[in-house]
Every structure is written in structure tokens, then in C-alpha cells.
């Protein structure tokens, strides 16, 4: 559905994903495909997930984040996290903290 558009800015070394709309189990699988094809296309060393325009998210969004962390490790053959989460609002931040992923929240420039 096009109300869950994902826009991806590919800078080669870094991919920034501007998520928008509602992230639930239904939309997460669509979003996952789009992000993974960008990751596989250019094997970036950093993935930035921007949540500014996300109007709703549940645990499927957490599954989406964890899945991308694993995908980035696989592509780069490393064990360190190379995912940054940015522009989260109150409720998305509570979800991320429930998942123990607060360390990934950061501002980007």
C-alpha cells in the first residue's frame, strides 16, 4: 500500500531509510523487502533508520529493526551493531527501550 512509503537515500557507505506511516506485521514485511534490497545492492557500512514520519508502530517494528541489525552484520561480516535509530517519539522510544535497543538511538548529521 502506498501510504506506507519508505524513502531510501543511498550514499554508498551509508543508507538512510525514512520510514513513514504505520509499521505493523502487515506492513513490516513490505518495508523489510525494500530495505534489504538496498542493503544487498550496495553493502553499506552504516544503516540509519529514521522514524520521524512513523505514525504507528508495534512489536513488528522491533522485529524489523532486529532483523536489519542481523542483515547488516551478515552483509559486513562483523559482530558490531551498525544500525542507528533516529527521530523517535515517546511511544516508539518506549518500545525500543522494552526491546533493550536504546543504545542505538542517536542523532545524525
Amino acid at each position: 500500500m502506498n501510504r506506507n512509503r519508505v524513502s531510501i537515500v543511498n550514499e554508498g557507505e551509508r543508507i538512510i531509510v525514512y520510514l513513514s506511516g504505520e509499521i505493523d506485521h502487515y506492513t513490516a514485511s513490505i518495508i523489510r523487502g525494500e530495505i534489504d534490497s538496498a542493503i544487498h545492492g550496495s553493502a553499506p557500512s552504516l544503516l540509519v533508520l529514521d522514524f520521524e514520519k512513523v505514525s504507528f508502530m508495534d512489536s513488528a517494528g522491533i522485529g524489523l529493526i532486529i532483523g536489519r541489525i542481523n542483515e547488516m552484520k551478515r552483509v559486513n561480516s562483523v559482530n558490531d551493531d551498525n544500525v542507528i535509530i533516529t527521530n523517535t517519539n515517546g511511544i516508539i522510544e518506549s518500545l525500543i527501550s522494552l526491546a533493550g535497543l536504546s543504545r542505538l538511538i542517536s542523532k545524525i548529521n
Binding site: A28, R32, D58, S59, I62, G63, L64, I66, G67, S94, L95, L98, A99
Partner: peptide
Amino acid sequence: ALFTTSPDEERAGLGFSVMES
């Protein structure tokens, strides 16, 4: 928290924790 019977489908195992909190 984090318990799931389908980790292969990118489930975080957080649904009940979210409802509870």
C-alpha cells in the same frame, strides 16, 4: 519478554510485554 515460538519470522517476542506495559 523475548519469548517467541517463531524467531525465524523476525518476531521479537515482545507482544505480551507491550500489552502489559
